[in-house]
Design a protein around this nucleic acid. Structure first.
Lengths: 210, 210
DNA sequence: GTTTTTCTGTTGCAAAAACAACAAATTATC
DNA sequence: GATAATTTGTTGTTTTTGCAACAGAAAAAC
């Protein structure tokens, strides 16, 4: 998300034909991948937006991660313990690089630039991912809907360096992301407006107090 | 946690005098470190148990992470956005290795074994950390206290390959870890017992149904 | 071995959140 | 541009969770 990784360079070096990786394209609402243990898939989202989504037995949908350009994902990061479905859904047209994690240390037969680039930059990628996961945990450990909403808005505000922020997904999805009931969230949003904490026009939020 | 990193080898190679790292000892309840942005501290817990804890304005205490031998932690993994205190507390006698992340890529002047070892093995360490964080997120996104408890018990059960499991911390701490009210959790634990899902004796839980 | 502190277990009550159901608005599809 | 599908906004009701307060048990400190 906030790595200094250059996407153009990346594709450029990849074009030197690495034997281990492949790029695929997806249109909106297509399933990019389903998490299955032991395949050790590592993916990088080169273009577009996608959500890692879980459906549980009660029919609840949870957006586990919201993925943007340069975010890494894949089942290597998971121990698939539960039998809940975990899948990555394209939210717009996407370009995804697939890689097998086992192959990262084994030098590519062609010793291609792409391969070198990836293994050199992976630590930075991963560090950025951990930071994102920790921010997510911070949000989820907040005790009330109000705190979750304000916490999330502050996060976005921090990123764009502005009190005015545009939600990256629908309110329905926001509830699934914060792991709360949508109608309860709507009620709380109204209270936040009434109490003067936020101004909301469409999916643009402006932070006020605090 | 489940890396194949060998602690003895580690200390052995460290004893060849790396100029950048240092090992410190802590006794129970001591504060190991406080997270401050821009210091880029990276730590490895060599011995003992510790908790990464956050205290928020309402006086709520949250155990953000429960750290065991070989777990890595430190402020490089955080964007300190909120002004909530984040600190690592020793839960038993601990031995901790401190390192500055900036120094990892710059080869140590002595080009010591330790340094090489660390930079070679860091990806595996980090991968394990991400897996743990994802499991934590899965727990926190569960919608009810019951699901959180069962989810956590299942996780521990999975790790030890047994239906009988020993909680790694007190019930008070468990509530802070699952980000729920302790008395509400106690009530739910009783219901789980009454419904025959678990048998509880002290801090040993045996899973029944499902 | 006694005292102090922390942890466990319990409960009534208040507050918050989830559930359910629907109309209006918006967006997508044909 | 009409129709279908999804999203937003709203509200009454039920359920769950949090809060507060306390007694007994266990653990730690002296």
């Amino acid at each position: 998300m906030n790595t200094n990784f250059d996407i153009e360079d990346f594709i450029q070096s990849f074009s030197t034909q690495c034997t281990k990786a492949q790029i695929k394209h997806f249109t909106k609402n297509e399933t990019i991948t389903t998490y299955i243990q032991k395949r050790n898939q590592l993916c990088i989202l080169l273009k577009g937006h996608a959500d890692l989504v879980r459906y549980d037995f009660d029919g609840n949908r949870t957006i586990v991660e919201h993925l943007s350009k340069n975010d890494i994902f894949g089942e290597i990061f998971y121990n698939i313990t539960t039998n809940n479905e975990l899948l990555v859904e394209a939210k717009s047209n996407c370009e995804v690089l697939f890689y097998n994690y086992n192959d990262i240390h084994k030098k590519c037969t062609l010793n291609c630039e792409f391969h070198t680039y990836l293994s050199e930059n992976l630590p930075e990628f991963i560090l950025s991912k951990i930071t994102n996961l920790n921010m997510r945990i911070e949000l989820l450990t907040k005790r009330s809907i109000r705190d979750k909403l304000l916490g999330y808005f502050n996060l976005l505000s921090m990123r764009t360096m502005s009190k005015k922020l545009v939600l990256p997904f629908s309110l329905t999805d926001l509830a699934d992301y914060l792991s709360i009931d949508r109608s309860a969230m709507m009620r709380e949003l109204k209270l936040l407006k009434d109490d003067g904490f936020i101004i909301k026009t469409g999916n643009t939020i402006t932070l006020n107090k605090q």
